[in-house]
Amino acid sequence: MKRTWPQSFLWLTLLIIVAIALIPILIDSASLREDLFLTLMLVILASSINIIMGYTGYVSFGHIVFFGLGGYFAFFLMLNYQVHFVLAALASGVGASVFAFLLGIPVLRLRGAYFALATIGINEAVRSFVTNFEPFGGAVGMFFNYAVYDAYGGARNALWFAYYAIVAVALVTVAASFLIKKSKFGLGLMAIREDQDTAQVLGIDPTRYKVLAYTCSAFFPALAGAIFFFKNGIIEPGPAFALLRSIEGLVMVMLGGYGTVTGPIVGAVVYERLRAFLITNPNFSSLHLFIAGLLLLVIVLFVTAGVVGWLRQRVPLLRRYLE
Protein backbone atom coordinates (compact mmCIF):
# COMPACT_ATOMS: atom_id res chain seq x y z
CA MET A 1 0.00 0.00 0.00
CA LYS A 2 2.63 2.46 1.08
CA ARG A 3 4.82 1.87 -1.91
CA THR A 4 2.07 2.12 -4.48
CA TRP A 5 0.33 5.08 -2.90
CA PRO A 6 2.32 7.84 -4.64
CA GLN A 7 1.41 6.39 -8.04
CA SER A 8 -2.23 6.10 -7.04
CA PHE A 9 -2.08 9.69 -5.86
CA LEU A 10 -0.83 10.81 -9.25
CA TRP A 11 -3.62 8.93 -11.03
CA LEU A 12 -6.17 10.34 -8.64
CA THR A 13 -4.95 13.89 -9.26
CA LEU A 14 -5.00 13.42 -13.03
CA LEU A 15 -8.43 11.85 -12.82
CA ILE A 16 -9.82 14.82 -10.91
CA ILE A 17 -8.40 17.19 -13.52
CA VAL A 18 -9.92 15.13 -16.33
CA ALA A 19 -13.29 14.96 -14.57
CA ILE A 20 -13.42 18.71 -14.11
CA ALA A 21 -12.18 19.31 -17.65
CA LEU A 22 -15.01 17.16 -19.01
CA ILE A 23 -17.75 19.33 -17.51
CA PRO A 24 -17.76 22.10 -20.16
CA ILE A 25 -17.65 19.46 -22.87
CA LEU A 26 -20.65 17.61 -21.44
CA ILE A 27 -22.79 20.66 -20.85
CA ASP A 28 -21.42 22.40 -23.94
CA SER A 29 -20.66 25.60 -22.09
CA ALA A 30 -18.31 28.00 -23.83
CA SER A 31 -18.00 30.33 -20.86
CA LEU A 32 -17.05 27.54 -18.46
CA ARG A 33 -14.62 26.29 -21.08
CA GLU A 34 -12.94 29.70 -21.18
CA ASP A 35 -12.71 29.82 -17.38
CA LEU A 36 -11.15 26.39 -17.22
CA PHE A 37 -8.83 27.17 -20.10
CA LEU A 38 -7.37 30.06 -18.16
CA THR A 39 -7.15 28.08 -14.93
CA LEU A 40 -5.41 25.15 -16.59
CA MET A 41 -3.01 27.50 -18.31
CA LEU A 42 -2.10 28.93 -14.93
CA VAL A 43 -1.72 25.41 -13.53
CA ILE A 44 0.82 24.74 -16.28
CA LEU A 45 2.67 27.97 -15.60
CA ALA A 46 2.72 27.51 -11.82
CA SER A 47 3.72 23.84 -11.95
CA SER A 48 6.56 24.67 -14.31
CA ILE A 49 7.80 27.50 -12.14
CA ASN A 50 7.64 25.08 -9.23
CA ILE A 51 10.13 22.76 -10.93
CA ILE A 52 12.85 25.39 -11.00
CA MET A 53 11.75 27.35 -7.92
CA GLY A 54 10.11 24.83 -5.60
CA TYR A 55 12.32 21.84 -6.30
CA THR A 56 15.59 23.51 -7.24
CA GLY A 57 15.39 26.72 -5.21
CA TYR A 58 16.00 29.14 -8.09
CA VAL A 59 13.42 31.91 -8.20
CA SER A 60 12.71 32.54 -11.86
CA PHE A 61 10.94 35.88 -11.88
CA GLY A 62 10.88 36.24 -15.61
CA HIS A 63 9.59 32.77 -16.37
CA ILE A 64 6.89 34.21 -18.61
CA VAL A 65 9.61 34.67 -21.23
CA PHE A 66 9.14 31.03 -22.21
CA PHE A 67 5.39 31.44 -22.48
CA GLY A 68 5.87 34.41 -24.79
CA LEU A 69 8.60 32.79 -26.86
CA GLY A 70 6.53 29.62 -27.24
CA GLY A 71 3.61 31.70 -28.42
CA TYR A 72 5.75 33.57 -30.90
CA PHE A 73 7.56 30.53 -32.28
CA ALA A 74 4.32 28.62 -32.85
CA PHE A 75 2.50 31.64 -34.25
CA PHE A 76 5.34 32.33 -36.63
CA LEU A 77 5.40 28.75 -37.91
CA MET A 78 1.62 28.58 -38.33
CA LEU A 79 1.35 31.94 -40.03
CA ASN A 80 4.28 31.75 -42.40
CA TYR A 81 4.71 28.07 -43.10
CA GLN A 82 1.17 26.77 -42.47
CA VAL A 83 2.62 24.25 -40.01
CA HIS A 84 -0.11 22.29 -38.23
CA PHE A 85 -0.87 23.70 -34.79
CA VAL A 86 0.16 20.58 -32.86
CA LEU A 87 3.47 20.39 -34.65
CA ALA A 88 4.06 24.12 -34.26
CA ALA A 89 3.31 23.93 -30.54
CA LEU A 90 5.71 21.03 -30.02
CA ALA A 91 8.37 22.81 -32.03
CA SER A 92 7.89 25.92 -29.92
CA GLY A 93 8.30 23.82 -26.75
CA VAL A 94 11.54 22.41 -28.05
CA GLY A 95 12.65 25.88 -29.16
CA ALA A 96 11.99 27.38 -25.73
CA SER A 97 13.78 24.47 -24.07
CA VAL A 98 16.84 24.93 -26.25
CA PHE A 99 16.79 28.63 -25.41
CA ALA A 100 16.52 27.81 -21.69
CA PHE A 101 19.34 25.31 -21.97
CA LEU A 102 21.72 27.76 -23.64
CA LEU A 103 20.69 30.54 -21.29
CA GLY A 104 20.77 28.35 -18.20
CA ILE A 105 24.42 27.41 -18.50
CA PRO A 106 25.66 30.94 -17.72
CA VAL A 107 22.67 32.31 -15.80
CA LEU A 108 22.25 29.47 -13.33
CA ARG A 109 25.73 30.14 -12.01
CA LEU A 110 24.19 33.17 -10.34
CA ARG A 111 22.69 32.59 -6.94
CA GLY A 112 19.73 33.97 -5.07
CA ALA A 113 18.75 37.53 -5.81
CA TYR A 114 21.21 37.81 -8.70
CA PHE A 115 19.51 34.98 -10.54
CA ALA A 116 16.06 36.45 -9.89
CA LEU A 117 17.19 39.83 -11.27
CA ALA A 118 18.81 38.23 -14.29
CA THR A 119 15.58 36.45 -15.23
CA ILE A 120 13.74 39.77 -15.10
CA GLY A 121 16.43 41.28 -17.31
CA ILE A 122 16.17 38.42 -19.78
CA ASN A 123 12.41 38.76 -20.06
CA GLU A 124 12.67 42.49 -20.63
CA ALA A 125 15.51 42.09 -23.13
CA VAL A 126 13.57 39.50 -25.09
CA ARG A 127 10.44 41.62 -24.97
CA SER A 128 12.26 44.68 -26.30
CA PHE A 129 13.97 42.55 -28.91
CA VAL A 130 10.70 41.07 -30.16
CA THR A 131 9.16 44.54 -30.19
CA ASN A 132 11.78 45.49 -32.77
CA PHE A 133 11.99 42.20 -34.61
CA GLU A 134 10.15 42.60 -37.89
CA PRO A 135 9.74 38.89 -38.75
CA PHE A 136 7.67 38.65 -35.55
CA GLY A 137 5.68 41.72 -36.48
CA GLY A 138 7.56 44.17 -34.24
CA ALA A 139 5.52 46.27 -31.86
CA VAL A 140 2.27 45.47 -33.69
CA GLY A 141 2.68 41.73 -33.39
CA MET A 142 1.10 39.16 -35.64
CA PHE A 143 -2.49 38.11 -36.24
CA PHE A 144 -4.33 35.33 -38.01
CA ASN A 145 -7.08 35.85 -40.47
CA TYR A 146 -9.91 33.46 -39.83
CA ALA A 147 -8.96 31.23 -42.75
CA VAL A 148 -6.20 29.78 -40.57
CA TYR A 149 -8.85 28.15 -38.40
CA ASP A 150 -10.42 26.39 -41.39
CA ALA A 151 -7.89 23.61 -41.05
CA TYR A 152 -9.32 22.94 -37.59
CA GLY A 153 -12.97 22.99 -38.62
CA GLY A 154 -13.60 26.72 -38.31
CA ALA A 155 -13.06 29.22 -35.52
CA ARG A 156 -15.59 27.71 -33.15
CA ASN A 157 -14.11 24.23 -33.34
CA ALA A 158 -10.63 25.64 -33.07
CA LEU A 159 -11.56 27.03 -29.64
CA TRP A 160 -12.54 23.55 -28.51
CA PHE A 161 -9.43 22.17 -30.08
CA ALA A 162 -7.33 24.64 -28.09
CA TYR A 163 -9.18 23.56 -24.96
CA TYR A 164 -8.41 19.87 -25.49
CA ALA A 165 -4.81 20.83 -26.10
CA ILE A 166 -4.51 22.81 -22.89
CA VAL A 167 -6.12 19.96 -20.92
CA ALA A 168 -3.62 17.51 -22.41
CA VAL A 169 -0.66 19.77 -21.69
CA ALA A 170 -1.87 20.39 -18.13
CA LEU A 171 -2.10 16.65 -17.52
CA VAL A 172 1.37 16.07 -18.92
CA THR A 173 2.78 18.97 -16.89
CA VAL A 174 1.31 17.71 -13.63
CA ALA A 175 2.51 14.18 -14.38
CA ALA A 176 5.98 15.45 -15.24
CA SER A 177 6.10 17.57 -12.12
CA PHE A 178 5.15 14.51 -10.07
CA LEU A 179 7.57 12.15 -11.78
CA ILE A 180 10.43 14.61 -11.46
CA LYS A 181 9.77 15.08 -7.77
CA LYS A 182 9.69 11.32 -7.17
CA SER A 183 12.80 10.56 -9.23
CA LYS A 184 16.50 10.50 -8.53
CA PHE A 185 16.70 13.65 -10.63
CA GLY A 186 14.20 15.36 -8.34
CA LEU A 187 16.06 14.25 -5.24
CA GLY A 188 19.20 15.80 -6.71
CA LEU A 189 17.33 19.04 -7.38
CA MET A 190 16.00 19.19 -3.83
CA ALA A 191 19.48 18.56 -2.47
CA ILE A 192 20.67 21.53 -4.54
CA ARG A 193 17.79 23.62 -3.19
CA GLU A 194 18.74 22.84 0.38
CA ASP A 195 22.47 23.39 0.03
CA GLN A 196 24.19 23.47 -3.30
CA ASP A 197 27.72 23.08 -1.95
CA THR A 198 26.79 20.07 0.14
CA ALA A 199 24.93 18.56 -2.80
CA GLN A 200 28.10 18.86 -4.80
CA VAL A 201 30.17 17.20 -2.08
CA LEU A 202 27.66 14.34 -2.17
CA GLY A 203 28.33 13.75 -5.86
CA ILE A 204 25.73 15.89 -7.62
CA ASP A 205 26.85 17.94 -10.61
CA PRO A 206 24.85 21.10 -9.83
CA THR A 207 25.21 22.78 -13.21
CA ARG A 208 23.94 19.76 -15.09
CA TYR A 209 20.99 19.26 -12.79
CA LYS A 210 19.98 22.91 -12.65
CA VAL A 211 20.23 23.42 -16.39
CA LEU A 212 18.17 20.31 -16.98
CA ALA A 213 15.53 21.48 -14.51
CA TYR A 214 15.42 24.90 -16.17
CA THR A 215 15.10 23.26 -19.58
CA CYS A 216 12.15 21.15 -18.39
CA SER A 217 10.49 24.11 -16.74
CA ALA A 218 10.68 26.08 -20.00
CA PHE A 219 9.02 23.41 -22.13
CA PHE A 220 5.48 23.44 -20.72
CA PRO A 221 4.93 27.22 -20.52
CA ALA A 222 6.00 27.41 -24.17
CA LEU A 223 3.29 24.92 -25.08
CA ALA A 224 0.78 26.89 -23.06
CA GLY A 225 1.85 30.06 -24.86
CA ALA A 226 1.50 28.38 -28.25
CA ILE A 227 -2.02 27.24 -27.41
CA PHE A 228 -3.08 30.51 -25.82
CA PHE A 229 -2.04 32.67 -28.75
CA PHE A 230 -3.38 30.18 -31.29
CA LYS A 231 -6.77 30.56 -29.60
CA ASN A 232 -6.31 34.32 -29.32
CA GLY A 233 -5.53 34.77 -32.99
CA ILE A 234 -3.26 37.67 -32.21
CA ILE A 235 0.09 37.99 -30.46
CA GLU A 236 1.75 41.17 -29.24
CA PRO A 237 4.91 41.71 -27.19
CA GLY A 238 3.10 43.23 -24.19
CA PRO A 239 0.75 40.35 -23.33
CA ALA A 240 3.28 37.72 -24.41
CA PHE A 241 6.00 38.85 -22.02
CA ALA A 242 3.90 40.29 -19.18
CA LEU A 243 6.17 40.34 -16.14
CA LEU A 244 3.14 40.71 -13.88
CA ARG A 245 1.75 37.36 -15.02
CA SER A 246 5.12 35.82 -14.29
CA ILE A 247 5.06 37.12 -10.76
CA GLU A 248 1.47 35.96 -10.37
CA GLY A 249 2.81 32.51 -11.19
CA LEU A 250 5.21 32.77 -8.24
CA VAL A 251 2.34 33.90 -6.05
CA MET A 252 0.33 30.82 -7.01
CA VAL A 253 3.24 28.55 -6.15
CA MET A 254 3.65 30.25 -2.78
CA LEU A 255 -0.07 30.23 -2.13
CA GLY A 256 -0.44 26.52 -2.80
CA GLY A 257 2.83 25.30 -1.39
CA TYR A 258 6.36 25.60 -2.62
CA GLY A 259 7.97 22.32 -3.67
CA THR A 260 4.85 20.16 -3.52
CA VAL A 261 3.12 18.65 -6.56
CA THR A 262 -0.43 19.69 -5.74
CA GLY A 263 0.54 23.08 -4.30
CA PRO A 264 0.87 24.90 -7.64
CA ILE A 265 -2.41 23.36 -8.81
CA VAL A 266 -4.27 24.44 -5.70
CA GLY A 267 -2.55 27.82 -5.84
CA ALA A 268 -3.46 28.42 -9.47
CA VAL A 269 -7.09 27.44 -8.93
CA VAL A 270 -7.53 29.48 -5.75
CA TYR A 271 -5.77 32.52 -7.17
CA GLU A 272 -7.72 32.47 -10.42
CA ARG A 273 -11.09 31.91 -8.70
CA LEU A 274 -10.34 34.66 -6.22
CA ARG A 275 -9.36 37.07 -8.95
CA ALA A 276 -12.44 36.25 -10.98
CA PHE A 277 -14.59 36.78 -7.90
CA LEU A 278 -12.96 40.09 -7.07
CA ILE A 279 -13.14 41.40 -10.61
CA THR A 280 -16.80 40.48 -11.13
CA ASN A 281 -17.92 41.62 -7.69
CA PRO A 282 -18.92 45.28 -7.91
CA ASN A 283 -17.73 45.99 -4.38
CA PHE A 284 -14.24 44.73 -5.01
CA SER A 285 -13.63 44.97 -8.72
CA SER A 286 -11.63 48.16 -8.57
CA LEU A 287 -9.76 46.96 -5.50
CA HIS A 288 -8.87 43.50 -6.77
CA LEU A 289 -5.15 44.23 -7.08
CA PHE A 290 -5.04 45.66 -3.60
CA ILE A 291 -6.79 42.62 -2.15
CA ALA A 292 -4.52 40.26 -4.08
CA GLY A 293 -1.55 42.11 -2.62
CA LEU A 294 -2.91 41.98 0.88
CA LEU A 295 -3.62 38.27 0.57
CA LEU A 296 -0.13 37.65 -0.72
CA LEU A 297 1.38 39.58 2.16
CA VAL A 298 -0.61 37.59 4.69
CA ILE A 299 0.53 34.32 3.12
CA VAL A 300 4.15 35.39 2.92
CA LEU A 301 4.21 36.62 6.50
CA PHE A 302 2.12 33.99 8.22
CA VAL A 303 1.62 30.86 6.08
CA THR A 304 5.02 30.60 4.42
CA ALA A 305 4.52 26.95 3.45
CA GLY A 306 1.34 27.64 1.44
CA VAL A 307 -1.94 25.76 1.71
CA VAL A 308 -0.64 22.29 0.87
CA GLY A 309 2.60 22.79 2.79
CA TRP A 310 0.67 24.00 5.80
CA LEU A 311 -1.60 20.96 5.72
CA ARG A 312 1.41 18.68 5.49
CA GLN A 313 3.00 20.37 8.48
CA ARG A 314 -0.16 20.39 10.58
CA VAL A 315 -1.35 16.88 9.85
CA PRO A 316 1.69 14.56 9.82
CA LEU A 317 -0.45 11.76 8.38
CA LEU A 318 -0.89 13.82 5.22
CA ARG A 319 2.84 13.88 4.62
CA ARG A 320 2.53 10.37 3.35
CA TYR A 321 -0.64 10.88 1.35
CA LEU A 322 -0.48 14.40 -0.01
CA GLU A 323 2.31 15.09 -2.48
Binding site: K182, S183, K184, L187, G188, M190, A191, R193, E194, D195, D197, T198, A199, L202, G203, I204, G259
Partner: peptide, 26 residues
Protein backbone atom coordinates in the same frame (compact mmCIF):
# COMPACT_ATOMS: atom_id res chain seq x y z
CA UNK B 1 27.15 20.13 10.10
CA UNK B 2 25.32 20.78 6.84
CA UNK B 3 22.11 18.76 6.79
CA UNK B 4 19.71 19.16 3.86
CA UNK B 5 17.28 20.74 6.28
CA UNK B 6 13.89 20.37 4.64
CA UNK B 7 14.50 16.79 3.55
CA UNK B 8 13.91 13.82 5.83
CA UNK B 9 16.76 11.93 7.44
CA UNK B 10 16.24 9.07 5.06
CA UNK B 11 16.16 11.37 2.03
CA UNK B 12 19.43 12.92 3.18
CA UNK B 13 21.08 9.51 3.31
CA UNK B 14 19.46 8.45 0.03
CA UNK B 15 21.10 11.43 -1.66
CA UNK B 16 24.46 10.06 -0.53
CA UNK B 17 23.65 6.63 -1.93
CA UNK B 18 22.18 7.89 -5.22
CA UNK B 19 24.98 10.16 -6.28
CA UNK B 20 28.01 8.53 -4.67
CA UNK B 21 30.40 5.96 -6.04
CA UNK B 22 27.81 3.40 -7.06
CA UNK B 23 25.31 5.72 -8.85
CA UNK B 24 22.44 3.68 -7.45
CA UNK B 25 18.91 3.98 -8.74
CA UNK B 26 16.40 5.49 -6.34
Amino acid sequence: VRPLSELSVKENVTVGACFGREHLAL
